[in-house]
């Protein structure tokens, strides 16, 4: 894909190459969420997605002299993070196998057996589920509670498999962010 970077973006890149911090800040604002969302989807770890995002933008700054020659900045961003992503994914898959009793946490948490053990987390998860947009919540619930396949969920809700996948990823990414806060186990008592 060879999008032409917009005029403004090209200007930004030249600005960054010249060491202009404001330009860099604007560039980060344009792409930060794209880079992070993508990384979180594939590495499934909030911490690692942060690391990858940080790494990519730090590389952009460190190699800013190259920016004037970059034809497709978005693709350049991808390439800067590619190896990191691939190795993080492989590590994640291997780790999951070595802890083969631990499924995806939200999935496990919905099993009644583990509810006691994870009572706090479970309650927090439910709170998180309630904050999902209705469609995401419906897809997530059907997938995890009723254990339906993507095709079955699509049929049930009248949406495509691809949309099911999108909603599931969004729901998981939201929960990964929501559950990561210490607020997970944070209680306020009023005296």
């Amino acid at each position: 894909m060879n999008q032409n970077p917009s005029h403004t973006e090209k200007e930004l890149l030249i600005g960054v190459a010249a060491g202009n911090e404001e330009a860099f800040s604007r560039l980060v604002n344009l792409y930060r969420n794209k880079v992070f969302s993508h990384a979180l989807t594939f590495v499934k770890s909030y911490e690692e997605a942060e690391e990858i995002t940080q790494d990519i933008f730090v590389k952009v700054w460190a190699n800013r002299h190259r920016l004037p020659e970059v034809k497709d900045f978005k693709n350049y961003l991808f390439i800067l993070g590619r190896n990191h992503l691939v190795s993080a994914i492989r590590k994640k898959v291997m780790d999951t196998i070595s802890n083969n009793d631990e499924e995806d946490i939200p999935g496990t948490l919905l099993l009644p057996d583990t509810q006691v053990e994870y009572k706090e987390t479970y309650r927090h998860l439910i709170n998180g589920l309630d904050r999902l947009p209705p469609q995401q919540k419906a897809v997530f619930t059907l997938s995890r509670m009723e254990n339906l396949s993507h095709a079955e969920i699509g049929e049930r809700l009248g949406i495509s498999k691809r949309t099911v996948k999108f909603h599931l990823v969004q729901a998981l990414n939201f929960l990964r962010e929501y559950l990561r806060y210490p607020g997970l186990l944070l209680i306020v008592w009023l005296f």
């Binding site: 794209k34 993508h38 978005k74 991808f78 939201f174």
Partner: peptide
């Protein structure tokens, strides 16, 4: 990875 990144497929 590249396709989904370029398409912003999972941008939340």
């Amino acid at each position: 990875l590249e396709r989904s990144f370029m398409d912003d497929e999972f941008e939340g």
